[in-house]
Design a protein around this nucleic acid. Structure first.
Lengths: 351, 351
DNA sequence: CTGAAAGCGCTTACAG
DNA sequence: CTGAAAGCGCTTACAG
């Protein structure tokens, strides 16, 4: 490793500048309160020694780390990556650093991460999802820091929430396909009886099914196969299963655009014309959905905005900490939007 | 926020267990060295108080944070997300936590991040790229911790390196297209005269050009347009520019599969048949490249492995710290692989 | 196998 | 506007 230069401490700076460490600390934290002459002396010393304040020590004595823990299913999903980026961006001006953990869609892993993260003394926790193990919920309740559950609308929030209703997303998808006149309707999701499960995807399927049933249709074509996270392969595979079960299926909703794209490519391979033979829609409005040929009808989520809103909420809550002690718990719904593109079309007149 | 439970300290635990704090510390750090009876007493007290050790304090006194700073261009690129995940996974068993920063392909931003991160006292820094500002390089040199430059092969590494040669990737792409008999060959990249620049993409273009020139061909069809990071739109747009300039272009290399997919979709829209009218190849072997119809010829990088190798290297270096003081600087080349799929084909006999 | 002392490098809370 | 004292919650380095 490169030759280490001896690390200067605040004490070194204070001696070189001929002041107390408190004055150095003030120059760094609140420069205006220090006289200009002193401030200049101190800044010169800092410069000369290449002094970098030790925030580990700072965190210990101030009892604030300026860390925010963000727990997401995976970094490999661009929607979650966008949320992380939006959150990081919103928090950065206030000098917060994200501590990212990913659960791979496993609740036990989420619990493990929360436990480990708590030892780092984050100033707040952001966690995707509204379902947690009992121990995880308890740890978050007792942590004494703001908690934000994101990417869904919790019935019983631990503290704050920023998200949208996955259930309503599923309903909107089903209503769209119904409104086009389709009656033989299926969906593609992943299993929930395995360790890794996409609970928000499952909510979308549940909402989707509820509309089918209300319309007097069966939900037997709602396919749950494969472990979360879904993939292009997942879409191709589950579409195959669906077609096997119901060659006459007219319209399909995939819990993710990634699956929808996989299904679309499988249609290309099988010579199935989309949307004339089969209507197809996804969720998430990933870039690829827009760029696909044909472009995929989907449900748009502003994942980055969701992250930014979460950050703004936290900034407010963390800022007011001293002021009002307990800021009212808030739930932000960022909503969603159905984007009709080229993969969905009205049902053809029968025979 | 939820009702905070008063946070127990090691001192609380030690009193409840009737031992000194040192013994509690040992039970946590090195249980085997403590007698069973004592250990059980302490564990019970820990359990009873829901004690979570404060690693901020631990880091300050031990002078190790178990933080690893990882600096990447963006989280939104699944290859970099894979690298981050691989790195995190490799380091987790040794209880290291990633501190992720993203530069948006800006060197000034990279410098800012390094400065900010250094205050968190990471045990090592992993940084994508081999080109840094002068100040950034100096800070890393003087940090006194292992530095790993990844995703390329630095000529003058600061310390360690794990990557592959982007230049050679470009050469391999050009050689492949030449070997198919193409002579009118172009490439799609992004600008390097803007704030955000993809220097590794530029290396690939440079390698690509070098082969063209060696073959006596011109590199005037190497297009550099748009800011990094590239996108599907970038591919569609730059392909349009290329076709304008050279309607007779036979083969194209895109610096990223994302651009290649965008270009492919643009071909679909324009009625250009791939590969019979135009051969197309990308870089990165993103999932979408494999799933596309036709599937895209590309150059495969095992981004997750790259992250894992980086982690393994760090584990070794950090483990040996006390032993040999300065472990030899190492450079790991993880290589790459050309994956020939359906978007490239031999040149047709002329006229 | 266990503990008393010192200290990691800052900030808090006073005091002047 | 500036500083002396105390302390944040651990681990290191001894000692027994």
């Amino acid at each position: 490793m490169p030759s280490p230069s001896p690390k200067a401490t605040m004490h070194d700076v204070s001696r070189l500048a001929g002041v107390s460490t408190m004055t150095v600390s003030r120059v760094l934290a609140d420069p205006d309160v220090v006289s200009e002459a002193t401030r200049i002396k101190v800044m010169k010393a800092i410069e000369q020694l290449s002094y970098v304040p030790d925030r580990v020590a700072g965190s210990l004595s101030s009892r604030r780390t300026n860390f925010i823990t963000a727990i997401l299913p995976t970094l490999t999903n661009s929607n979650f990556a966008d949320t992380a980026q939006g959150l990081a961006e919103a928090m950065r001006p206030a000098d917060y650093q994200l501590l990212i953990g990913y659960t791979m869609y496993r609740l036990e892993e989420e619990e493990r991460i929360i436990r480990a993260m708590l030892a780092r003394r984050p100033d707040a926790i952001v966690v995707a999802g509204t379902t947690h193990t009992k121990a995880a919920t308890e740890m978050m309740m007792r942590a004494g820091i703001p908690i934000v559950e994101i990417w869904d609308t919790p019935e019983h929030p631990i503290d704050h929430a920023v998200g949208f209703s996955n259930y309503e997303v599923g309903r909107a998808a089903a209503l769209h396909l119904l409104s086009l006149g389709h009656r033989r309707i299926g969906a593609l999701g992943s299993r929930i009886d395995s360790d890794a499960k996409d609970l928000r995807g499952e909510s979308r399927l549940a909402g989707f099914s509820s509309v089918l049933r209300e319309a007097g249709l069966s939900d037997e074509l709602v396919i749950r196969e494969g472990e979360a996270p879904v993939s292009y392969d997942h879409g191709a595979l589950t579409l195959g299963i669906l077609l096997n079960k119901a060659p006459d299926v007219e319209a399909v909703f995939a819990v993710s655009d990634i699956s929808a794209v996989g299904a679309l490519m499988e249609c290309h391979r099988r010579g199935i014309k989309v949307p004339s033979d089969l209507s197809l829609m996804g969720f998430g409005d990933f870039d690829i959905a827009r760029q696909c040929v044909p472009a995929i009808t989907t449900i748009h989520i502003d994942a980055e905005l969701l992250g930014r809103r979460t950050g703004e909420l936290l900034l407010q809550v963390l800022g007011n900490r001293t002021a009002s002690e307990s800021v009212t718990t808030s739930a932000v719904n960022v909503g969603f939007e159905l984007v009709s593109r080229e993969t969905t079309a009205p049902a053809r007149a029968k025979r």
